[in-house]
Structure formats: C-alpha cells, structure tokens
C-alpha cells in the first residue's frame, strides 16, 4: 500500500462526505465519527446516484436517488436490495486522512 494524504478529517462534516477524484473515477470519503472515515465508490450500482450526497447514518449511507442503503465497511447493499460498491483502504492518522494510492490507480504512488 502507498498512503496518500488527501486532507484533514476536519474538512469533512461529521456524518457527511467529500469527493476525491482519482484515475479510477470519483471516490466518496465518508466521515462516520470524530476520527473515523471510509472510502468507497461514489457511484450507486443501481442508477448511478452520487453516494457522497446521501444521508450518513451509523456506518451506512443512503443513496439520494432511490434510497438504496450500503454498508461503508463491506460495500454491500443492505436489506432487500442486491449489489455492492467498491471499498478502498483508508486510515485516519493524527487527524489526517490517508488513502491507499495503489488501489485507486495512482501511478505516481504505485
């Protein structure tokens, strides 16, 4: 893994999200706790809704278009819906958010 510092945890509102543009498309970084964040694909597999615009609850997000709910930990759709979003390695260290550059296709980091 190659950790890339993408910003401060304070740059994302609690229970909110921000987008990171990567060579592999837009990734949504969700802040689920004071020092807790997850990175997943920003695109809902159902109709392509922007998950970063969804409501965040517990460690889940609800897609703003048709209310599909995904676990941010596993990427799996919850309840009756079937599908999954890709998850990406991320860690929070000393208030900084570190994203794994290799898995998001960052060549300079690879």
């Amino acid at each position: 893994m190659s950790w890339i510092d993408i910003g401060s945890i304070e740059d994302i509102p609690l229970r909110g999200a921000r987008v990171v543009k990567t060579p592999r498309g837009c990734i949504a970084v969700f802040r689920t706790g004071l020092q807790e964040a997850y990175a997943v694909s920003d695109t809902c597999p159902h109709k392509g809704g922007p998950l970063s615009d969804g409501i965040v609850h517990d460690r889940k997000v609800t897609c703003p278009l048709h209310n599909w709910v995904f676990s941010l930990e596993t990427g799996q759709a919850q309840g009756a819906d079937e599908g999954a979003i890709e998850t990406f390695p991320l860690k929070v260290d000393g208030g900084r958010i570190l994203l794994d550059g290799t898995s998001v296709g960052n060549k300079s980091a690879a």
Binding site: G105, N106, K107
Partner: peptide
C-alpha cells in the same frame, strides 16, 4: 469548499 472535491488525484497521475 464542501462543493469542491476534497482532493484530485488525477492531476498528480
């Protein structure tokens, strides 16, 4: 700033 991407890694690549 909430409306802008947190980071743009495509530029670096």
């Amino acid at each position: 700033k909430r409306y802008a991407p947190l980071a743009d890694l495509t530029l670096e690549a």
